[in-house]
């Protein structure tokens, strides 16, 4: 029954009493229109949280706010930095926030072109983030890049090719390698399988599931696809009109949805 979702890594236990990321009463208006309103949740190390809802439900606004790409109108987002202290992200210096985004976090965009440098080689795309954390040794960078291309199932012979010569699925896998190479603790994903063929999607999901398990990553993934949420996430937040309608254990929300809107979403899944 629980085979689909990866289990939180065994590292997660009572000794880690502090969440990695803590969101409180987060609200974002666009003028007088609500983007997302009064959102609160925590995410712990090794946990995968899916934010689901249809287009316009506010899930991307929420993702952009918690990843500090968009300032909220009110509310707080706190992150447990490597010093073990929770910091309010919007009170950090810009330079610290950028460093966080480049090293301790990853962001996987729906469109790989938004997350890759399309005119740089595949190897450079992966190596760039290593250099951001201070690696200057060319041989080591190239070796690590080859290792990561292999982990995302891209032939090492393609290391000097530019991603624009890659298929959509390969580009997405390259974007994932670029994000994971610095061993981030938290990765944001915005519809990572959107726009891919079904067979390519399945391969990417398998790959992501394996990597998340092996690395013990915390992931916040935005998707409109409940099958993706079932496969990858432990917990789920269902959004509608900018607000949370229901949140909880992924398989419970799918097997026993309580809110009328969640029941509608679940009853709309095609039986496979």
């Amino acid at each position: 029954m629980n085979i689909a979702a990866p289990q939180a890594s065994a590292l997660q236990d009572d000794s880690i009493e502090q969440p990695l990321l803590s969101v409180r009463s987060l609200t974002r208006y666009y003028g007088t229109r609500i983007g997302c309103a009064d959102i609160s949740f925590d995410i712990w190390p090794g946990e995968v949280l899916a934010i689901v809802g249809e287009s316009g439900s506010g899930k991307t606004t929420l993702l952009n706010c918690i990843s500090t790409r968009l300032p909220p109108t009110s509310g707080t987002v706190s992150y447990s930095m490597r010093d073990g202290v929770l910091h309010d992200l919007f009170k950090l210096r810009e330079a610290d926030r950028r460093f966080l985004l480049r090293t301790d976090w990853g962001f996987v965009h729906q469109n790989p072109a938004d997350g890759l440098r399309m005119a740089a080689s595949a190897g450079a795309n992966v190596g760039e983030r290593l250099m951001a954390v201070g690696d200057r040794h060319y041989g080591h960078i190239r070796e690590t890049a080859i290792d990561w291309l292999d982990r995302v199932e891209i032939d090492a012979g393609r290391i000097d090719d530019q991603p624009r010569a890659f298929s959509g699925g390969m580009r997405q896998r390259l974007q994932i390698a670029r994000n994971l190479v610095t061993a981030p603790r938290l990765v944001f994903m915005d519809e990572p399988t959107g726009g891919l063929d079904v067979s390519v999607q399945a391969r990417l999901l398998d790959l992501l599931r394996g990597l998340v398990n092996d690395l013990g990553l915390a992931v916040i993934i935005v998707t409109h696809d409940l099958a993706v949420a079932r496969l990858l996430s432990h917990r789920m937040i269902v959004m509608k009109d900018g607000r949370v309608v229901e949140q909880g254990l992924t398989d419970r929300l799918l097997d026993d949805p309580q809110a009328p809107y969640t029941q509608l979403l679940v009853s709309s899944i095609l039986q496979g």
Binding site: M1, I3, Q7, A10, A202
Partner: peptide, 21 residues
């Protein structure tokens, strides 16, 4: 609940939910 499933309560369901690969 996830912790309890990991350590204390196991489950054999009627049907296997398979992963493609």
């Amino acid at each position: 609940i996830l912790e309890i499933r990991r350590e204390t309560i196991g489950y054999v369901s009627q049907f296997l939910r398979v992963m493609p690969r």
